[in-house]
Simulated assay, not measured.
Amino acid sequence: MLMLSKLPKGLTRHWHISLSLPLILLGALLTPLALRSYVEASTYTRRYTNINQVPSKPVAIVFGAGVWEDGTPMPMLADRIQGAIDLYHLGRVGKILMTGDNATPEYNEVIAMQYYAHEQGIPLEDIKLDYAGFSTYESCYRAREIFGIQQAVLITQQYHLSRAVYTCNQLGINAVGYGTPDWGKYQDESMRFYTQREMLAIIKALVELHILRPKPTFLGPFEGM
């Protein structure tokens, strides 16, 4: 049997590196998968795909997902808004918080979201706009601190739902989630991209929630719902 102690010093070092590299690569691969599994398991009982099973909450929170140049919602965002509209008409929520990106005057997700919902019968007085929801973390943080939300249904695609529910719960909101369709509705290439990016986003979320706890880009005065 080959004994490492009998190998020349340089060769021994090379042997250890050769053994360690696959383990490092394996760990780098498994860690995101393990963290995603942890977040999914932690939120399993709080996520729904059947709208008739979603428990009633005072507010629905809709996360921004992009608008076209003409100011209309992109398909994923339209699906999210439609989910909130359907919950409202079923009497499962009484208010809707639209949270998204309005970083520049030329780009305004939340106005597009408001217009889409109002066109389908949601009264303007039941829609609140968060113009500084630049990320899931910031949207959840501001929902609690600026709008005073303590309970909510979160509406987003299924691939993103576990992180959204986990984030809001960690930031003090008793949240459940309604997941709109993604795989099977959108192109597989797009869904692979979103799913892979989501694993990195989960790592970032766990660091923000459990280590850094950064303030949002903007806070401002309390507005309430």
Rank of each mutant, 00 (worst) to 15 (best):
E125M: 04
P105M: 01
F147P: 00
L154N: 13
F147T: 06
A117S: 14
D101M: 02
H160C: 07
A103D: 01
Y116A: 08
L129N: 00
S162I: 01
G121A: 09
A112T: 03
V165L: 08
L161F: 10
M113T: 02
L124F: 08
S139Y: 04
P123S: 09
R142N: 01
I146V: 15
Y137K: 05
V110H: 01
F134E: 09
A164Y: 08
L124C: 00
Q151T: 07
E145F: 12
Q120H: 15
A143E: 03
A143Y: 03
V110P: 04
A143D: 02
A103Q: 06
M113A: 12
M98Y: 11
N169P: 00
E119C: 05
I149L: 07
G100L: 05
V165R: 07
I122G: 03
T136E: 03
T136C: 07
T99M: 02
Q120R: 15
Y107S: 05
H118T: 12
C140W: 06
K128V: 15
I146W: 04
P123C: 08
K128F: 09
Y131T: 13
E109I: 04
G133Q: 01
G121D: 08
G100P: 10
I146Q: 06
A143V: 03
Q150L: 01
Y166T: 00
Y166M: 02
C140R: 11
Y137V: 03
H160F: 13
S162K: 02
Q157A: 07
N102P: 02
K128A: 14
R142K: 05
A112R: 05
S135C: 06
G100N: 06
L129T: 01
L161H: 04
T167P: 10
A132V: 13
T136V: 04
E138L: 03
E109G: 07
L154I: 14
Y166Q: 04
K128Q: 13
I149H: 09
D126F: 01
M113E: 02
A164M: 10
Y116L: 07
F134R: 14
S135G: 11
T156I: 04
F147D: 02
Y159W: 12
N108V: 06
A103G: 07
L154F: 12
T156N: 14
T99N: 02
M98K: 09
I149N: 04
M113W: 03
Q151G: 03
A143W: 04
E125S: 12
Q151M: 04
Q120T: 11
Y159T: 14
N108R: 14
